[in-house]
Each structure stands twice: as C-alpha cells, then as structure tokens.
C-alpha cells in the first residue's frame, strides 16, 4: 500500500492533487460529477475585494496542446463569496480549502484576506500576484521582487494562516521573486500562472481574444513549469505548489521530483471534468511502477 499523503505548510493532504483556481469554480458544480472530498484540497475561484465582471468576450482561444484565456478575474466580490459561494462549497467539501485572492493594490489584498481570515474552513491563502489578464494590478505585483515582498509582508500582518504566493512565469528570474516572497514571510509559493500569449485570426486579421493577449495553459507549458519549479526549489526553503499543464499521475511525479510538495491541475479540468479524480485514482499504480512507497520521499528528488 503506497502512501500518497503530503504535508503542505503544516496541514496534511490525503494526496497532493489540488484543482487550480479559475478552473474549478467554487467546487460545488464538480461535486455533481464526483465526490470532491477525494481531492487533496481545492483552490477556489480568484476573489477580489469588489465584484468583477471580467473581460469582454471572446475570452478563450485554442492553442496546440493548450489554450489561451483572458477571463479577467470574474468573481462576485469577497462579500458574496463569503455569504453565497463558500456555504455552497462547504456543503459538499469537508476539508480545509485554499482561498485564492487577487487585488489591484496592496490595500485590496490586505482587506480581502482580512475578511476571509475569519471564515472557518480556509486552510491556506494563495495570493495571486500573477494574473496576466487584468490591467493595473495582478501580474505587476509578481514581476518585481520588491513589490512581491511588499504584498507578502502586508498580508502576513493580517493572517496567521499559511500564505502561499502564486508566481508569474512572465519574468526573467522567477527564483529572485520566490526569494523575495520568502523574505516577506510567505509559507510557500505556487507556480506557474499562465504564460502571456496571443493568437490571431487569419480571416479577420485581429487577435482571437478581445483582450488581445491571454494566458497560455495546458500541456504546452509543462516543460517551462517543471524548469521553473526546479529553479525555485534551489532558491528557497519554503514548500512549492507546482502547476502547469498537469494531466496525468506521471506529471504529478515529475513536478514533485522537480521540487513540488503538492500540485495544482488547471486547464485539464476544462477538457476532462473528471481529470483530478482520474489522476488521484491512477497515482498508486504509477507510484508502484516507479517504486515509490511514499510521495513525500520524492520531493526534489531530481536535484
């Protein structure tokens, strides 16, 4: 019997598989398909202080082995998330969840985290400083070490829960951003968010996405993500949540060997709504195949 348990910032997960924010809503819709309590945890839809409609449509375009999205952090705002969405999630999910928070100023991050901090059932904060699809905020905090450290420090002051900072791959040196988060008091980092991309329609000669640019996700970005997890593992001591194109149990092992303690599955949930369940169910088989008794033994094993 293999052991799939891992410990993420002091809380044990039954397995390292976490649906990524923005691909799983607030979980309850997937609960119609399977028992979502088999997940390690889930990172819910990115939440901001004020409600956001997001970007105009089309927001989606296809790419080889992947997709572009420019949803733009559509969410009902933190008040409604607390009063309407989370109660529905907690009806079907009885494990601690990861609260994904975005903002357009340090103050917004702080206020949103403060409001969510008192909600029972939140086990971790995932602070998104890497959304490429919003203007004047989002990714701009994640592309400078000083700004990343400032956000981390500010959020650190208002919560005792573990803080995981979600990093952007759209930088020249992701390790330096991760180090700045660690210095600011982060308990972990998650990476990678989507890679900024564009596609152009040959008939209209215009970008396929109304926002012009979108974030690339899916298997196309996996080698980039594995490389960045590997580099960040060398640079920091805090745990890493790895993501980027994961679609199989083999991918989970690959990210853990690169240095991830847990992983998030994103775009794959959109093409296979059972993706996380399928990966979790397949993990023991793949662990046996590669002679892994306990997943926590392989973290960073490629170094």
């Amino acid at each position: 019997m293999v052991n799939t348990k891992v410990s993420l910032c002091g809380t044990e997960l039954d397995n390292p598989v976490i649906p990524a924010s923005g691909t799983f809503g607030f979980g309850y819709e997937f609960a119609e398909l399977y028992d979502i309590n088999l997940l390690g945890t889930l990172s819910f839809k990115g939440t901001t202080l004020a409600p956001r409609f997001g970007n105009p449509t089309p927001r989606i375009a296809e790419a080889h082995s992947g997709m572009l999205n420019a949803v733009g952090l559509q969410n009902p705002g933190v008040e409604k998330v607390i009063s309407e969405e989370l109660p529905k999630l907690f009806e079907v999910f009885n494990k601690p969840v990861m609260a994904n928070v975005s903002g357009f100023s340090v103050d917004e991050y702080v206020k949103t985290v403060e409001m969510l901090d008192s909600v029972e059932g939140i086990g971790w904060f995932e602070i998104n400083i890497s959304c490429p699809n919003v203007h004047g905020g989002g990714m701009s905090f994640g592309t400078s070490p000083a700004a990343a450290e400032e956000v981390t420090r500010a959020v650190r002051r208002v919560t005792d829960k573990p803080i995981i900072i979600k990093l952007s791959p759209n930088v020249t040196d992701i390790a330096s951003i991760a180090k700045a988060c660690e210095a600011g008091g982060a308990d972990g980092v998650s990476l990678i968010n989507t890679l900024l991309g564009m596609r152009i329609d040959l008939k209209t000669r215009k970008p396929l996405i109304k926002n012009k640019t979108g974030g690339l996700s899916g298997p196309a970005i996996k080698p980039v993500a594995v490389r960045m997890v590997y580099q960040v593992y060398d640079a920091v001591k805090i745990p890493i949540v790895g993501m980027g194109g994961i679609s199989s149990a083999e991918d989970v092992i690959e990210f853990m060997l690169a240095g991830a303690t847990a992983v998030e599955v994103g775009a794959e949930n959109l093409v296979n709504p059972y993706a996380c369940r399928d990966i979790i169910e397949d993990l023991p088989r793949v662990m046996e195949k590669y002679k892994i008794n306990s997943l926590d033994e392989i973290i960073g094993g490629a170094h």
């Binding site: 923005g22 691909t23 809503g25 819709e29 989606i60 999205n69 949803v71 559509q74 949930n269 093409v271």
Partner: peptide, 12 residues
C-alpha cells in the same frame, strides 16, 4: 467556450 459546463467563466 472553454469547458462548456460552467467552470472556466470563458463565456459570461
């Protein structure tokens, strides 16, 4: 659409 079943908010 991204997913077709309400998860990705691509078609709001």
């Amino acid at each position: 659409m991204g997913c077709g079943f309400g998860a990705c908010m691509g078609c709001t």
